[in-house]
């Protein structure tokens, strides 16, 4: 290499520094090992352990027994698991598109310099930082059939009182609505950040070419935001398929099992009825589904990016 000539001009101290840089393996490992041990120890080990568990009968206390694929076979036939899957799919199919579309609409509305815009943005976003437990407790009160403000308002308007969370026909949809209240703000801020990256030259050019507001939105803004949209679809879908906290706090899967979602099913089987092997099989089924959704959207994202 050309360094034979170069060494003459190099400060001798820097050569020592280079030599030092080569022998840094120990420092590198010392810096990363606490993170590596904790992160890998609490993910790789449990993932493999879960796989073993899913082939066993285990009550978290006594020694487990190997049963092969029996848990998975039972899962397929279990009507409770089937309805947990369908509740989760209904919740996801409503929550994901609604939150992403509303997020885009609100972000576009908030993407302008007018008075109070900072306040509007804050208010739209603030429910997102409220924990699911706090949301659940708050809405259990708001929607309490007897003492809640919702029925009180309906009464004032002369409308009939509703059962809300005690009505099997309403509970799941109310959970979607509460999640939209808190989760749309996330889509809004991600879209707002994305909108900063939409080239104003392109928008200007489209305007000059005679595009109206809708034309600019359809042909300039939306294509430019496509990567953001795909990310949000992925992120929101993964979150929706794993909904648990809000269900636990508000309905505990009821009434009549109408809000039992997959993770609630998994939690119940592991820590309430102590059938951990069965629960692990359900968890693995969900994880594989999540992986498929994630991989499909990643492939789609690459294709969009390549265009």
């Amino acid at each position: 290499m050309a360094s034979v000539v170069g060494t003459f001009t190099v400060d001798p101290r820097s050569r020592a520094a280079k030599r030092r840089a080569r022998g840094e393996g120990a420092t590198g490992w010392a810096f990363v090992s606490p993170s590596v041990v904790i992160i890998l120890g609490l993910s790789v080990v449990p993932v493999l352990w879960s796989l073993l568990l899913s082939f066993q009968v285990n009550d978290l206390v006594s020694p487990s027994e190997w049963v092969g694929l029996a848990n998975y076979k039972a899962l397929v036939k279990d009507p409770a698991f089937g309805s947990a899957v369908s509740h989760t799919l209904i919740y996801t199919a409503l929550y994901v598109p609604l939150s992403v579309v509303a997020g885009l609409g609100i972000a576009i509305a908030l993407d302008r310099k007018i008075a109070l815009i900072g306040l509007y943005r804050t208010l739209v976003f603030v429910p997102f930082v409220v924990s699911a437990a706090a949301q659940g407790v708050l809405f259990s009160f708001v929607l309490d059939p007897e003492f809640g403000v919702a029925n009180s308002l309906l009464h004032k308007l002369g409308l009939p009182a509703q059962g809300f969370f005690s009505d099997p026909g309403q509970a799941l949809y109310l959970l979607v609505a509460i999640s939209l209240w808190s989760g749309t703000g996330f889509c809004v801020i991600v879209y707002l950040a994305g909108l900063q990256g939409v080239s104003s030259d392109l928008v200007e050019a489209a305007r000059i070419d005679g595009a109206g507001r809708w034309g600019v939105l359809r042909h300039v803004t939306l294509p430019a935001l496509a990567p953001v949209t795909i990310f949000l679809l992925l992120f929101q879908t993964i979150n929706a398929l794993q909904v648990f906290d809000l269900v636990f706090v508000t309905t505990k899967g009821g009434p009549l099992g109408s809000t039992t979602v997959i993770v609630y099913f998994i939690w119940e089987k592991a820590f309430k009825t102590f059938t951990a092997g069965y629960s692990a099989a359900a968890a693995y089924t969900l994880a594989v589904a999540l992986l498929v959704v994630g991989a499909a959207l990643q492939i789609y994202r690459r294709r969009v990016a390549a265009r």
């Binding site: 993910s43 449990p46 879960s50 568990l53 592991a270 968890a283 999540l290």
Partner: peptide, 9 residues
Amino acid sequence: IPFQLTMIP
């Protein structure tokens, strides 16, 4: 890795 996969172990 989803949390519910690792929670029991």
